[in-house]
Structures are given as C-alpha cells and as structure tokens.
Design a binder for these strands. Structure first.
Lengths: 351, 351
DNA sequence: CTGAAAGCGCTTACAG
DNA sequence: CTGAAAGCGCTTACAG
C-alpha cells in the first residue's frame, strides 16, 4: 500500500469509526451464545432453537444492523462463495457483459458472487488474474472468450475447477459451454427457405473458426433437408466486416440466376450488404431477403428494414457455465464435457 | 504447535494433496515461525530478517506451491482488498465493460480486485447486490451507470464509502466522476469550424440529460468563440436513434441556406443521417460534414466514410473513480466532489 | 533478528 | 434446546 492510499482512506474514515456489529455483539444483546446466533441466522434446522430465542436473535440483529462477514464465513466454513470469471475482452462488445450477466444471475441463485477479471488477451495479465482468483479461494473459474474459439488452458490455472464459456480446449480436460453454430446456420437458412426462396446465398467468413465451419454445415443441412442441391457458386467466402458485406452485394448481383435471399455470416456483413443493395436500388426483402447472425442490437435492430438474425446465446452460456461449474442438475448426462446451447432466431423485417 | 497444525500436517503427509499449503506448512518446512514467513512474503522492512532465513522461506514457498489465502489475510488485517462495482446495465453496450476495465487496471495497480454486480436497473436486485458487496467487506463501492445521468443513492449503501462513476447525485454527498459534455460539444463543433464551415447544425436529443444540455452549451460556446451568431433554426431537437438521424437529414436539407456541417448528438443519429443523405445523393463530407458522439466503434469505425466523433471516456472514468475511492493523489484539490473527464475527439473521414 | 500468542469473525463438532 | 471451545489461515503487537 502506498502512502497516498492510507492517508486517503484515513481521511475518509477518521473520526466516527463506528465498529461494525459482529456476531458476538448480537449474542450479547440477545443474551445467547454466538453459536446460537449463527444457527438462527443460517436457518440450521438441525439445531432446534425455540421460537422465542429465535425472535430475540432477530431483534438484536435488526437493532444492531448486523451483517455477517462473508470473508470470516468462508474462512471458517472452508468453502468460498466466489466464482472467478476471466474474460478476454470485456470492453469491445456487449458480449462479455451478456455472459457475465447470465453467470451472475445463476450464481446469485446459489449464493455465489462473481469475481470478474479482464485479461485483454495479454498472457501476463492472465497470469496475474488467475493468481488473484486463486488467492481469493474461488470455488471455480469461468474461462470465457468474447467470440467462440479454441483456447489453450493456461498452466497457472493449477488444479482449480474450470469451465470454458464460449470456447473450448483441445484435450477437453475441462467441460465447455458453446453456441450451436450448426443449428444457428441451419435455422437462418430455414427461415429463408420457409419464405419460399430457392436460390439462397451464404456469405461466409474466411476465418478458421467454429462459426465459419458450423454455419456452413448448417446451411448445407437445411438445403439438403429441403431437397435443394448445394451450389458452391452461392457461397462467398469473404471477411467479416461491413466492407465485406458491400463486396458481397456487388458479387451477388452479378451471379446469373441471381439469388433471392442471403444468409450473412454476421450482422456487420449484412449492414454492408444493405448499403450495396441500396446503391443499386434493390430493396430488402422484396428484391433480396437477408438474414444475419450475432444479433448485435445496435445494428440489427436499427437497419432499415430491421434485420432478422440469429442471436448468440451469451446470456445462456453464462448461466449454463455456472450450472456446470456448481454441478447443478440440468437434466443432462452428468460428466458431459461439451454443452451446446441453441442460437435462437430473432425475427424482424428483412425476410 | 497447535493441535490444528499437527492434525493438518498429518493429513497432508498422507500424500493426497487435498489440502492447500498454509503458512504453517511453509514455516515448518523452512524451520521458522509463521510470523517470520508472513514478514518475508509481505516484504515488511520493519522486520529485519536475515538473507539466509529469507531464502529458506522462499524456497519452502516454491516447494509447496504456497499461495496466501487472501480471505484470511483480509480477516486478520482488518482491511479488505475488494472494490465493489454496481453497474446498471452491463450487457447492452460495451460502455460498462470499458468502465470496468479502467477500474480494474487501476485497482490492480494498488492490489485491489473488483467485485462486479449488475443490477439491470431493478431496485430489488440493487439491494441484493449492495448487501452482498457489504457482506464481503468491500473497501468501497463504485456506483456506475452506462450513460451519464443523475441517480438517487440507494439507502442500503449504508455508510460505505462510494464514488459515482458516470453519474451524480443531487445532494452531492459522494464524489462523482463524469464526462465533460460541454467540452465534448465544444470540441465537436470546433472540428467543423476548423474545417471552414460557418453554417453548422446541431441535432440534439429531447432527453432531459446532462448530455443534451452540456453538448448544446459546448456548441454555443464554440460558435461564440468563432464569432458566429447562434441560429436556433440550426438546432434540431429529436430522438437519439438512427430513425431520428434520418428525420434530421430530411429536415436539414429543407432549411434555406442549407448547413454544410452537422454535429450529431450521437453516432446512431449520425448513422441515420448518413442514410438520409445517401438517399438524396448527397455525399459526406463534401456535401455535408458530420461529427458524431459516443464513438461506438461498431458504427463510427465502419460507416462509409468512417465517422469523426467524440469519444466518451468510460475507461478513464473507471480509472479515476478508483483513484478517488482509494484517495490516490491525482494532483487535484483534495476533497473535490466533481471530477470531470475530457471527451477526446476521434478523427476519421467525415469532416 | 525471531518466536509465542492473541486476535480477526465466523462455524461446528461436542457436551450437557 | 443451548453453551463452551476449538479451529479456519492469516497479521501484528509484544517480548526477548
């Protein structure tokens, strides 16, 4: 601690340093032992405390404004109520936030709280984050990424129990929770097919990622199920940004027997595609139906017309990851290492 | 040696590493007292420990893979190393993530870690979050919002020391750290002025928020400094979404002596404005120069042409809020209640 | 230079 | 039904 810190907090706290009430204070006021207090506030049924005593304890708790010290509780019970989360990029998209929110909601249901760390994909920062998490006796760690990808588990994880959220590791040493890219791709394509389209293009990304492979696979499965032959000319493999969407628009329009619908790798590509189509006077969805992926609200909800898209289930991944970590029964086979979460379709007006 | 220690070591010597090494294990192996271990690993200069002893201790630490238990440390030292952050919306924008990242970076520099909670703007959830934070003995709380606004401090904060991040409270009971909306508005306007524009419109938002008032004030200050009379016809007061941007575009074009530049309340408005301009065949920046606000990367970085915009300093707000909380000397007057952070301009290609 | 001991605020067998 | 006491893993006066 630096001098600045101690003097700073000293300035804020000096003077009326009212000590917080402890369990001993409550016990004294209620005229019982601290053990009894512990039993009633923790609702231990095993110990049968008389209603009168119980009430005296609660009255004392209220009067003193007593709050249990969670740290002391962890120390003595030997079980901490912390779940550590390490995120690679908390500040670039709302995705990490969604995952964290899901994790928090589920953690709270079971009396756990989240210790959040952001590593910015820097190995040294990650090492520091892990050390800190471990020193705080976390019950387990959620190792998460902001886009679905493969990771290598850092050795400094030690033998902590960990679940991978939105990512996976080769050796499959730890359970992982990932989005169902295949189903997502299939659903996106099916929505287009259901609207009567037969020439459905897919603007894929060049990246080597589960998303590119999975969504393409889903696209093919949907076509096959509809009895439509796969036409490789209808699959464009470009980048994953707005710019690629524009390029895709340019190319799509040139294809003979122009497709009437496009499934875009993500919303940003769809955004660029909208631009290209508009420049040619083509309208969505009448001239070209479009489906996106990611449900980046700021894009998909506000394009004109609003974009029908497949959502990434970050919130649900956070929820499930905590369930897996805590060993909550979710009806799945126990010990399952790969948990796949459905990507729901968000219907708007582009189909 | 206490009973606990001997029974503990017995378990450890059984060969199953079920139990993590404690300071007592290190002491035993290094053949010193646990007090000595504590002194060397915490680098207490007051206690002059011989170099030889020091080395023996470190060797034992390495051999056992000892990690201090941060919870026990907090309990016995009486000072926790937690900073609680309560965020109202962690999952809708990347803003909360940016603030958290700044807070984390600064907190880590001083040995503190973040306990993050998301309240989703639900009062009951907030009460629960605060209770949990307090029970974990946080050193202080960062109360944050994802957009700059006034808040009411929840009573359940008790007498915890709190700093408001990206928000402020009426009574000014707690210090706050907020973006400099006035300077932001001024800077945005100055960029347009510097490019030679004299008819500069401002598309403001109807919301009753510090942003609407501050940016308008900054706009007026910039005009005045440039000797340009304020023309109320050039100020449009609309919504704050894409749709409003389109409407603004429609209106701007009708104004006689059409403005040649627009300062938009935010990037989403600018995005809608781009659409409206494009539909009329007008080009940015040749026919109309545009400046946004917020620097929502996904929009501003990818519009065509990329948008020059004013960034909200969420990261810096997080950093400063922690500094204020910990009483770190930042060169500002001590006890300052309102910390204003500059909003930097991000130059791209729309001016 | 270093150790013995008390204490932080809880929980939990163990008695009675 | 309830209390006395040991223990969780540290820190920190206090001695020597």
């Amino acid at each position: 601690m630096t001098n600045a810190e101690s003097s700073g907090s000293g300035k804020a706290q000096d003077g009326h340093h009212t000590r917080r009430a402890t369990i001993a204070d409550v016990a004294r006021l209620a005229e019982v032992s601290s053990a009894t207090v512990s039993f009633v506030i923790n609702n231990k049924h095993a110990m049968r405390i008389s209603a009168a005593t119980r009430e005296r304890v609660w009255a004392a708790v209220r009067e003193l404004g007593y709050r249990p010290n969670a740290l002391a509780k962890s120390l003595s019970s030997g079980s901490s109520r912390f779940i550590g989360v390490v995120a690679d990029a908390i500040a670039t998209t709302p995705f990490a936030g969604q995952l964290i929110q899901g994790a928090q909601d589920e953690a709270w249901r079971h009396g756990y709280v989240l210790l959040v760390t952001n590593t910015d994909e820097e190995p040294e920062v990650e090492v520091q984050a892990l050390r800190m998490l471990l020193e705080h006796q976390v019950a387990g760690i959620l190792y998460s990424t902001y886009y679905h990808r493969e990771v290598e588990l850092p050795p400094s994880l030690g033998n902590a129990s960990v679940v991978l959220a939105n990512c996976y590791a080769e050796g499959a040493v730890a359970p992982c929770v990932v989005p169902d890219e295949v189903q997502g791709g299939r659903t996106a394509t099916e929505v287009l097919l259901a609207a009567g389209h037969r020439r459905v293009a897919f603007v894929n990304s060049v990246e080597d990622a589960p998303a590119t492979k999975g969504r393409l696979q889903g696209y093919r499965i949907a076509l096959e199920a509809a009895g439509i032959p796969f036409d490789e000319n209808l699959v464009l493999t470009l980048g994953s940004h707005q710019e690629s969407g524009s390029i895709a628009g340019d190319k799509l329009v040139e294809i003979e027997q122009r497709p009437t619908a496009v499934f875009c790798y993500n919303d940003r590509v769809a955004m660029g595609l909208y631009d290209a189509l508009r420049e040619r006077g083509l309208r969505v969805p009448t001239d070209m139906a479009v489906v996106g992926f990611d449900n980046q609200e700021i894009i998909s909800g506000h394009l004109r017309p609003p974009l029908t898209t497949v959502a990434l289930p970050h919130y649900e991944i956070g929820v499930r990851a905590v369930q897996v970590l805590l060993g909550i029964d979710t009806g799945e086979p126990p010990g399952l290492l790969r948990h796949v979460i459905e990507c729901p379709i968000i219907i708007r007006e582009s189909v």
